[in-house]
Amino acid sequence: MAFAPLDPVLHNQLRLAVVSLLVGVESADFNYLLAHTGATRGNLSVQLNRLKAAGYINVKKTFRENYPNTSCSLTRKGLKAFETYVEVIKGYLDT
């Protein structure tokens, strides 16, 4: 039996963790994602750029009390990709 291919953008622990966090919230800032994923700043930054390039997340850079603040939220495309990924994973686990 042939398995549906997994989305390579989401099939990465850190990117999947970020998208799974964003599914449950309206928006989350960089430090929140850092604290909850346990990633390094550099790696998180790279993976956020990958997700943004795929159109899965919106990244808004602002200043909060003179410090840069990066806020991320899931796009409709990102949510759809996540739902599809979960369905495919379920298919793998059910067989």
Binding site: H11, L14, L16, A17, S20, G38, N43, Y85, V86, I89
Partner: peptide, 21 residues
């Protein structure tokens, strides 16, 4: 946090992060 994942590991990451949120 960058290695290949099995389907079970993927589900575990999703579950853990949704609980965190």
């Amino acid at each position: 946090m960058d290695q290949e994942m099995t389907p079970a590991q993927s589900m575990e990451v999703i579950h853990r992060m949704i609980v965190e949120a």
